[in-house]
Design a protein around this nucleic acid. Structure first.
Length: 531
DNA sequence: CAGCTGGTTGGACCG
DNA sequence: ACGGTCCAACCAGCT
């Protein structure tokens, strides 16, 4: 019993599968579980009031669960670098534990804290528990590079075997030998923040669909795991982006904050799969967890992963800078009801289906508006409850055909795509109720409805709801050509202009481009030799 | 090595 | 209603 430990919660807001917390409790006299309200976050990113609520609820739940084992949560205000020296002295701390975090800011922050802890003779213990595997290990196994395809990731993971089994949550019994000192003077100082303290307006909250916290996460998990047939048959591409209630688990916000452990989720799924025929990665639920791993690995292994410039896997594209179009997209005013309904759901509820993300991301970038994926990334980062740095950056690059996915001629139609699973546009009517009187024939394209119908529906297009800000069929073709040119520039080929691509000349141009490319390659090689 | 295969989830059109 | 074919042709990884 020779340690006074701080366990530092950042993500990983849970008691289950928390090896760093268990390490803090070992041979421990006094345990101080803390969360730091780090001013870096609100300064460097917009966070919606919905996500602040989720965090506050997750912290409350954590505090309650800690109290059940005779401890509590201390919420500390300030910069980690300034907070720790004070706490180390005040609580006579000898050990600091936390979960490994692979995001760039976190890595830098944690390195500084680790150094400072050493200066105060505080032992630091870090444990991997946010991801299924140790991300650095995956990269090492792949010769120091992040796998750029899913198949490659699977190949690299195969010899590593299944992810570790989750650690048990600590119980009262584990706290028998140690205590969390409790002074009344602590209560105000280390209390869970309110939305008001965080500068948020509770009036702006959306419906309370996904309460934050570990307790909610585990009960949500249990509910879904009971649906064994559904779990075993799960194929992500067959779930619906525009159902009126989510067609997938919506466990992602809980994963983002670590209210649910990926490994706990993995092994619960394995239990359900056991002895049953079931779907497989990439489309299965296990497959979804591996996608998370895939993008986490890329986020660590690829420099400047959340940017285009300086990002070696990202195609360099001459995106336009159209502030009006960006604003229209982010506020759900593009004139395409399917797109605007999705953006409305995102803004009000904080969660949209994965394929809905595809539709709006393609629309913003290579499909229609030709606006940088970094702009979309910022909007998602603000509004999504599950906004996760690596996943957000990776998926935006995927959808904009900037990295991982390259079949840029496959463009989602803002009209046709939604119809596949919602012919009558019920989803659109839910989120854009002013369109609810349009018949199915026009619900995806209300501008095509006759004026008399628009009047009867009580919504004049161009007045009560915007006309489409771009003509999809026109910009789509133009954008595919721009994408093709961006790819051609990347491979060292000549800039293939629109003019050269007309009709019968196509084949000739292709041959020329190939020839140019090989010349460029020869030049590159020659240069290399000289060096 | 040059060529091949496969790639989480496209769209339009045809029968 | 739904499966097949074409569209135009990308890249990463493998052999």
């Amino acid at each position: 019993m020779n340690h006074n430990s701080i366990h530092w919660f950042r993500k990983g807001l849970r008691l289950h599968d928390n090896p760093a917390l268990l390490a803090a409790m070992k041979d421990c006299a006094e345990l101080y579980p803390i969360f730091i309200l780090d001013p870096w976050f609100p300064k460097n990113m917009q966070v919606s009031v919905n996500r602040w609520r989720f965090l506050v609820e997750a912290l409350k739940d954590l505090d309650e669960n800690l109290k059940k084992i005779n401890s509590r949560l201390f919420v500390v205000r300030g910069k980690p670098a300034e907070v720790f020296p004070v706490l180390f002295k005040k609580w006579k701390v000898t050990r600091l534990t936390f979960e490994v975090d692979t995001e760039p800011y976190s890595k830098q922050r944690d390195a500084e804290v680790e150094k400072m802890a050493a200066e105060h003779s505080v032992q630091v213990i870090q444990k991997v528990s946010n991801t299924l595997y140790d991300i650095d290990r995956i990269i090492a196994e792949n010769n120091g590079k992040a796998p750029l395809t899913y198949v490659r990731l699977q190949t690299v993971l195969a010899p590593l075997g299944s992810p570790k089994r989750p650690a048990q949550a600590p119980t009262k019994n584990d706290m028998k030998e140690c205590s969390t000192p409790w002074k009344s003077s602590y209560d105000g100082k280390y209390s869970i923040p309110t939305l008001e303290e965080l500068g948020q307006d509770p009036e702006k909250l959306g419906p309370h669909l996904y309460p934050g916290g570990e307790t909610e996460a585990l009960s949500r998990l249990e509910i879904y795991m009971k649906r064994t047939a559904w779990v075993c048959n799960f194929q992500k591409p067959e779930t619906e982006p525009n159902s009126l209630t989510p067609s997938t688990t919506v466990l992602s916000p809980y994963m983002k904050f670590g209210c649910l452990s990926a490994r706990t989720f993995w092994w619960k799924l394995a239990d359900v799969y056991h002895g049953r025929k079931h779907s497989h990665p990439p489309v299965s639920l296990h497959g979804q967890l591996l996608w998370r791993e895939f993008f986490y690995t890329a986020g660590v292994g690829v420099p400047n992963f959340n940017k285009m410039e300086g990002n070696p896997v990202c195609v360099q594209v001459d995106w336009d800078n159209n502030k009006e179009h960006l604003k229209a997209w982010s506020e759900g005013r593009t004139g395409y009801p399917f797109i605007d309904a999705i953006m409305t759901q995102l803004r009000t509820e904080g969660w949209i289906h994965h394929l809905a993300r595809h539709a709006v991301a393609c629309f913003l970038t290579r499909g229609d508006l030709w606006i940088s994926w970094e702009e979309g990334q910022k909007v998602f980062e603000e509004l999504l409850l599950d906004a996760d740095w690596s996943l957000n950056a990776g998926n935006w690059q995927w959808l904009s055909a900037s990295a991982f996915f390259h079949q840029f001629f496959r463009v989602y139609s803002p009209v046709a795509f939604g119809k596949k699973t919602d012919k009558n546009g019920e989803y659109i009517k839910k989120y854009l109720p002013f369109l609810k009187k349009f018949p199915a024939e026009y619900i995806y394209e209300p501008w095509k409805a006759p004026r008399s119908l628009q009047e009867r529906a009580g919504c004049i297009i161009g007045k009560d709801y915007p006309k489409p800000i771009v003509e999809h069929e026109v910009v789509r073709k133009k954008n595919i050509q721009r994408m093709k040119a961006a790819y051609a520039r990347r491979s060292g080929s000549v800039d293939v202009g629109d003019k050269d691509l007309e009709g019968s000349k196509k084949k000739g141009v292709k041959r020329n481009a190939a020839k140019e490319q090989s010349v460029a390659d020869l030049l590159k090689k020659a240069k290399f030799k000289k060096d």
